[in-house]
Computed example of a mutant assay.
Amino acid sequence: MAVQQALEWTFRTERAQLELPEPPDPERAHRQGYGFGLEYVLMQRAALGCQIDGGRYKKDSYTHEDAEVIAATVAGMPDDLGGKRMAIHVAELARAGLTPDWMPGAVPQCVPFEMKRNRYGDHATTVVVGTERVLSRGKWRTVEVRACPVTYQPYPEQIEAARRGYRDWMKALGWIKEGLQAGGMLREVVVIEGMPKVLPWEP
């Protein structure tokens, strides 16, 4: 399966948990002793070269070993790709069966900064930007010059931020795919080359 399918199978179907390393706390370590992370356990399993039976309390709680390997790989996301935050983001999207919102079809549009409603309907608010003297019915009068402040929605920066987030997610998926293919720790799942579209907003 492709890496996105593998992640959705891991977190959505198998309901694997993301075991993130906790920040070091010397006092807690002294009280509880040092434990082993999932990555260490998986490396030890690989070194044994055989599957370990037992350790599960009931069938319903079973998580496929390959799903645990994939979850452990995600948990090891390097800091230059977003670290723990990206690992959580990848897992949450996979659990929901979603891809990041890259704002498809979004184009900045010029719209009034603020709208008001009265009995005649909605209308754009205006502000006084100056005064002018005009000749009206033979008399000079001072009148306000009003303008409608405008803005662009969505902001170009919002669209770029959404698409940068999508590109960062793609980099994370590429790293996970390469790690799973090179690691050789999956027993049944085979991660193939398929990836989501790199720049889906381009024709």
Results as ranks from 00 to 15, higher is better:
2 A>S: 15
3 V>C: 11
3 V>M: 07
4 Q>K: 13
4 Q>P: 05
6 A>S: 06
6 A>K: 02
7 L>M: 12
11 F>M: 00
12 R>A: 04
14 E>F: 08
15 R>S: 14
17 Q>H: 14
17 Q>V: 13
18 L>E: 03
20 L>C: 04
21 P>N: 07
22 E>A: 15
22 E>W: 10
22 E>R: 15
23 P>H: 10
27 E>H: 07
27 E>Y: 07
28 R>K: 15
28 R>L: 13
29 A>L: 14
32 Q>T: 14
39 E>W: 04
39 E>H: 07
41 V>W: 07
41 V>H: 04
42 L>E: 00
45 R>G: 00
47 A>K: 13
49 G>W: 02
49 G>Q: 06
50 C>R: 14
50 C>H: 13
57 Y>E: 12
57 Y>K: 03
57 Y>A: 07
58 K>V: 08
58 K>Q: 08
60 D>E: 14
61 S>L: 09
62 Y>R: 12
63 T>Q: 10
64 H>G: 03
66 D>R: 04
71 A>N: 01
74 V>P: 01
75 A>K: 00
75 A>D: 00
76 G>M: 01
76 G>C: 00
79 D>C: 03
80 D>Y: 12
83 G>P: 05
85 R>N: 08
87 A>I: 02
87 A>D: 03
90 V>I: 14
94 A>M: 06
95 R>T: 00
96 A>W: 04
96 A>M: 07
98 L>F: 06
100 P>T: 12
100 P>E: 11
101 D>Y: 09
102 W>I: 06
104 P>T: 08
107 V>E: 14
108 P>F: 12
108 P>W: 12
109 Q>N: 10
113 F>Y: 14
117 R>P: 03
118 N>W: 05
118 N>Y: 03
119 R>T: 10
120 Y>K: 13
123 H>I: 05
124 A>V: 11
125 T>I: 13
126 T>I: 08
126 T>Q: 15
127 V>R: 14
128 V>Q: 05
129 V>A: 04
130 G>W: 08
138 G>P: 13
138 G>E: 13
140 W>A: 02
142 T>A: 03
145 V>F: 06
145 V>M: 12
147 A>K: 14
149 P>K: 09
151 T>H: 11
151 T>P: 04
151 T>K: 13
153 Q>C: 10
153 Q>N: 09
154 P>I: 08
154 P>N: 11
155 Y>I: 03
157 E>Q: 12
157 E>P: 02
158 Q>S: 14
158 Q>I: 02
158 Q>R: 12
159 I>S: 01
160 E>D: 10
162 A>P: 06
162 A>D: 05
163 R>W: 01
163 R>V: 06
164 R>A: 07
165 G>M: 04
165 G>N: 12
173 L>R: 03
173 L>N: 11
174 G>I: 08
175 W>R: 09
176 I>A: 06
179 G>L: 01
179 G>N: 15
181 Q>V: 06
183 G>Y: 02
184 G>T: 02
185 M>A: 03
186 L>N: 02
187 R>S: 07
189 V>A: 07
189 V>M: 08
190 V>F: 05
190 V>P: 01
191 V>I: 14
197 K>D: 08
197 K>V: 13
197 K>S: 05
197 K>M: 06
198 V>D: 02
200 P>W: 01
201 W>V: 02
201 W>R: 06
203 P>Y: 01
203 P>T: 08
